[in-house]
Amino acid sequence: MHPAIGLLWFLGTIAFMEGFAYAAHRWIMHGPGWFLHKSHHEPRKGNWELNDLYAAIFAVPSIVLLLGGVQLGWWPGFAWIGAGIAAYGAIYFGFHDVIVHKRLNHRYLPKSAYMKRIVQAHRLHHAVETKHGTVSFGFLYAPAPEVLKAQLNAGGNAGVRGPRGRQADQAPGPRR
């Protein structure tokens, strides 16, 4: 396979993975897979959470396609597709786990409008503690924060987390 064609498969797979990640996040993780994903919407205790199993689950197709395309004589495009899945995983890890959730210590502060928008959208996603009523399920693309805030307000703010530091026995205050 010509490397230019392979590169198109690689880049196309990265783009496809954003759509796949959106669908998996919205309808699997906030659906029947909530039993794993719920840990990601709660304060983390330690370095790991049950939600981290999704990374291992989503790595399997990448590994199989890379192995088949490189070592087992399958169609060479499978290697490029497997590499695209792995690249999306690496990009996701960098944005989501490192930049947004700071699972690795760093001092990076988003300066570009794009990065600020992605971080804000993910924070708005985490404003909801429950399986239902949240917004912004993609990661490399996110609607404007104003749109997401309007969606949260339209949903009546069901499940929206109260201000940090509020005692559980205090009466709930106004939602922001």
Rank of each mutant, 00 (worst) to 15 (best):
M1T: 14
M115K: 02
R176T: 10
P43L: 08
H132K: 03
H96G: 01
S62D: 06
V135H: 00
V98D: 10
R175H: 09
G138H: 01
A15F: 08
V160S: 04
H40G: 03
I5N: 15
H96N: 05
Y88K: 07
K102S: 15
H96P: 04
V128D: 06
L11T: 14
G19V: 07
W48P: 02
L8W: 10
G82C: 13
G69D: 12
K149I: 01
E42T: 14
F10E: 07
E18W: 07
I63S: 07
W80P: 13
D169S: 12
A168V: 12
V128N: 03
L65R: 13
H2M: 15
V98H: 09
P174I: 03
P61A: 10
I14C: 07
P76M: 13
G19I: 02
A56L: 11
A154E: 09
G173W: 09
F58D: 10
P174A: 11
E42K: 12
K131S: 01
A121G: 11
G82D: 12
E49F: 06
K149D: 04
M29G: 00
Y54V: 02
I63K: 06
N51A: 15
P43G: 11
Y108H: 15
D97I: 08
R175A: 06
V135F: 01
M1A: 13
M29D: 04
A127E: 02
Q71R: 15
H41F: 07
L36A: 01
A154I: 02
A144C: 04
P145R: 02
G173Y: 03
L7R: 11
K149A: 02
R44G: 12
L148N: 00
H101N: 08
A15S: 09
H125N: 00
A59D: 10
H132P: 03
I91M: 14
W80L: 15
